[in-house]
Nucleic acid binder design. Structure first.
Lengths: 231, 231
DNA sequence: AGGTGAGAACGAACACTGTTCGTTACGATC
DNA sequence: GATCGTAACGAACAGTGTTCGTTCTCACCT
């Protein structure tokens, strides 16, 4: 009994009071430094020097916390004021992906989050504006933003999983080499193209491929027929 | 002690032996009917009339099981033999999305799964073949398959989350109406476009938007400059 | 000043989870 | 028929999210 002597924490002087913002901020910090599996209610509470039950005053449940964290993370997205519409879209989406990737695991959660949060809406607002600059009609712009958002979330999620794997000991070269070996081991009779194209399939850095993909989507959007008309 | 009398199950006649395939199949059945949160090791084991520990002979851990389930689900993808290259790609991707959507929650898991499983590779093989028919070079085809796969997983994941929400009582109209209300409640000074374009942003069925999105990507791919050249 | 009530904070508990351990039981081999 | 590798198993461990009932605090009112 010499070590614990649980002095009621209430007695401690000037403990910063809890708040939704504080909890979300701490959650993001934990997520960034220790990953999604470490983001437990108890872990967040411990960081705030309290118990898990106390969090439920400000947060409905863990999902609610995650959604709030997604929105908070998206506050870091920057919006360029000059440049062509393509440059604007690329800059916005790049910083969006970066914001989601920085906190490992958030991207997967963001896939579920409705775009109905303040900061997610702000991203949408600026993307629509940039797309409209290209001259497309409103419907194309609206659906285009949807498509871009889907791509951004998925790209961030993929990047996250990739990073997680790297953090778990599998270095990049090992990982690519393993896939290369797998492709090489496939029966050329069943998988002729994959077998023969494996070096071209695994080439290019993640950033190069991401930039190419976003470019493809942007080109496709401006070239797309108006939704509703004959496709 | 009158109620349990745990007769060793070994004594029961002709119990079908376990196997990796059986476990994966049961897992898919549970996932399809009860969703991801119900897919626990104990639940799968119970379905097989055994204990959770017994599964670990055939499955490394829950993630291993999920990856195997993704591959198994992708066995349902169909590959058309006739039609234009666009029709082939659309048919393949549609059945891929359907296969991932049918088992709620698999899509999210598939985002992490490397495309290094037999059936995922088969999808890739056929997609590359279809893309090459369009006349694009090998590098464009390879990266294009990547992009299409990313889109397919993300679309299935989004669809899954949407369905999950619908299953949890929120009917479709409620959900859309809620988003509409949220957009309407946004400050028009900060979100002018979203505020004024909300009906156009929420229009169209999920299928229409998905078809449009895939079309945009296909158009973008054939129009894209060869990766590596100046973008 | 003294009392009071709303609600934040809390500890303990519940019903679960994935996974491991040591032991039992079985079926093919010698 | 004895043996032995290994599949199958029950029990346990260290966690998880969440809820319950209680304690404490502090702004407000008499």
């Amino acid at each position: 009994m010499t070590e614990s002597t649980p002095v009621s924490r209430r007695a401690r002087p000037a403990k910063a009071p809890l708040s939704r913002e504080t909890i979300v901020a701490v959650g993001l910090r934990v997520l960034e430094s220790e990953g999604m599996s470490a983001l437990t209610m108890r872990r967040v509470a411990r960081e705030l020097d309290t118990g898990a039950a106390s969090l439920y005053v400000y947060v409905d449940n863990r999902d609610d916390l995650l959604v709030a964290m997604v929105d908070s993370a998206l506050a870091a997205v920057v919006y360029p004021t000059s440049g062509t519409w393509q440059e604007k879209v690329i800059a916005i989406v790049e910083s969006q992906v970066a914001a989601l990737t920085r906190h490992r695991g958030l991207a997967v959660a963001s896939m579920g989050a409705i775009p109905a949060s303040p900061n997610a809406s702000l991203v949408g607002e600026h993307l629509v504006a940039a797309l409209l600059e290209s001259g497309v009609d409103k419907l194309t712009a609206a659906w285009g933003v949807d498509l871009i958002g889907l791509w951004a979330s998925a790209t961030a999620a993929e990047q996250t999983i990739y990073d997680e794997r790297a953090a778990n000991g599998l270095v990049e070269v090992d990982y690519l080499q393993r896939i290369d070996e797998f492709y090489g081991s496939l029966d050329p009779a069943v998988y002729p193209l994959i077998h023969s194209m494996r070096e071209v399939m695994l080439g290019g850095s993640g950033d190069e491929r991401a930039a190419w993909g976003l470019n493809v989507i942007l080109n496709g959007i401006v070239a797309a027929p108006v939704p509703g008309d004959a496709i």
